[in-house]
Design a protein around this nucleic acid. Structure first.
Lengths: 332, 332
DNA sequence: GAAAGGGCGGCAAGCCCTTGCCATGTGTTT
DNA sequence: AAACACATGGCAAGGGCTTGCCGCCCTTTC
């Protein structure tokens, strides 16, 4: 015996299938009494509407896709987690896809899912602006940790966060800072560098960008070596993973942190508090990024007139001071 | 202009829609030459089959759902990651759902998705065996980190791993070990305790189970306090998070690790190598769990005769020795 | 050269719902 | 009492695809 369909419910309740359909998807269109009867019959029969049949005509799927640029990066998991929880709260299903740091794969995956989801969450997308704008023309899209004019987005406040971080370093007496940059086409890396450079200028510090580096622990070694050649006393790594890699290499080279060199990262991952020395980092509630992004997407997906402007959410970030930053060494 | 359908392609290629359909889903059923022509037209038109229409008749969705018992637990992310990558390799889509440690929610989510996916990956399911067996009767199911008679599963080798861990502690001179247990209805917690108890007995050690504890850092404090009352010199925590919490509390209470007490965990999370002292832990390639689980599921989903037995994969685990375990203190 | 077989394409019946439009019945207004 | 508005339910046309079955034609076989 196969699963009951809308016909079985209609027969059981003595109504037309259209009425059953509306009892589920358009409740106020059906008399209270009728609806209750239908729901009761459906319950008894164990009827669940077939989502595909539903999607076929209604073009709504109650599913959203989250595309992350690199699923191996633990930083995204908080975002994914927040997104999943928020999606679930609205009875939406979350599909997870990995772009493997490739714009081509990202595009392929999006094309593949275009018909199966109501919208896309693009986390740290590597696609060029044009592609994104085109996509946003035909689908609901929300960017996470990237801003593109005209597309809704959610980011953590890099500007203010970087400013605080630079001011912190400046007030410790550092006069030069190196930013160990993340991937070349990472919007957030560009945005961090810009904020660091501007803030450094405002503090009278010199700022230098090095890299790009793949932001993993294993690439921290090269980054540290390169940074040491500059003589800078303050290092800001693109993220905590890279920063931890830097710390390791510095330890291996007997460079003391923070006595000789100060190091800071981004994301405040769990390990940032455990490594030695513990890591000063720019923190933020990443789960909220995912949550807010879904919220924005659901707003956009909902029928009704668009508000004129694409919303740009900027969530607060906060500086977490630990022991990897300290006073600049006294000049020799 | 709306998206092209199979009709447009059929017209363009001068064939019937059934032929177009087969050109995509049953290539060897169509002459090579015809197929090429169809694919070329489809390409030109930008035709992509509508997955919902497809699913409606074929009952295949090329989608699998991964249900995790608690999405806030970082341990799962490796598994999710492995699963996503493997699914993608077979052009399957992965849906992620969170059971929030609740059997009820887990069941609801499964019911909701039952029609939209080809199968379920249940990671650390909290459902009773009966429910799982019933589910496995109607759907393709693969269990991750749990074994149920008759259902395909993938686990890390707890038994041998725990044995090695206990032998390691025994050979360091410890004569008593405490297992700080994970959640009550966690299969893996039960399985670990059983392996620890048996191995301890074989080594002439006494073993004690305490808890259950929610396996997070914050619950490690209570676990540590409780464990200290027993006078045991070796502590095995349900996972690394709990172990790190234990380490923190011990440090706060000035109990030296490993001089006074040895501590070990499970999972070898990234932070295990960074905490102080670094943590001895039972490691395993968790991404492989996800990968293998998807593989098993795809095997099960594929048409064709079932092999008689439900496969039970046991992936190797390995003991990673770090500095949180050491010789037992000399008795006073 | 006739019969048998295989490869290939087409027909048409679904798969299970949503939704625009119409029909009916009831209550309200003038 | 006529005219109307509104609430409610039904009809039927899809939505875009898969697949069992049939039939055609070209090979092969004896």
């Amino acid at each position: 015996m196969s699963r009951p369909t809308i016909f079985d419910v209609a027969r059981g309740a003595g109504v037309a299938i259209s009425t059953v359909s509306r009892a589920f998807s358009n409740p106020q269109r059906v008399a209270e009494e009728t609806r209750e009867r239908i729901l009761r019959v459906a319950e008894e029969l164990g009827y669940v509407p077939n989502p595909h049949a539903r999607a076929l005509t209604s073009r709504r799927t109650e599913t959203i896709a989250m595309v992350v640029s690199d699923i191996t990066n633990p930083h995204f998991f908080e975002i994914i987690r927040g997104a999943e929880m928020r999606a679930k709260a609205s009875r939406f299903t979350l599909v997870l896809v990995n772009a493997e740091e490739s714009a081509r794969i990202e595009m392929e995956q999006i094309a593949r899912l275009a018909r199966s989801v109501d919208g896309f969450l693009l986390a740290a997308s590597r696609l060029p602006d044009e592609d994104l704008l085109q996509l946003a023309g035909t689908h609901s899209v929300v960017m996470v940790n990237r801003q593109v004019q005209g597309i809704p987005s959610v980011i953590l406040d890099q500007k203010e966060g970087c400013r605080q971080l630079v001011v912190h370093l400046a007030s410790l007496g550092h006069s030069s800072v190196v930013y160990l940059s993340g991937p070349r086409n990472s919007w957030i890396a560009a945005s961090r560098w810009q904020a660091i450079r501007d803030s450094a200028a405002a503090c009278g510090m010199s700022a230098l960008r090095m890299g790009p580096y793949t932001p993993t622990v294993s690439h921290g070694g090269a980054a540290a070596d390169a940074a040491l050649t500059t003589g800078a006393t303050a290092l800001i790594a693109h993220n905590d993973l890279l920063a931890i890699g830097v710390l390791r290499r510095l330890a291996a080279r007997s460079v003391r942190v923070p006595e000789d060199v100060s190091v800071a990262g981004f994301d405040n991952i769990f390990a940032a508090d455990l490594c030695s020395p513990s890591l000063t980092t720019l923190s933020g509630v990443h789960a909220d990024l995912g949550r807010s992004a879904v919220e924005l997407l659901l707003d956009g997906v909902a029928p009704g007139p668009r508000t004129g402007e694409a919303p740009r959410l900027v969530l607060p970030s906060q500086l977490v001071l630990r022991s990897s930053t300290g006073p600049a060494p006294v000049a020799v």
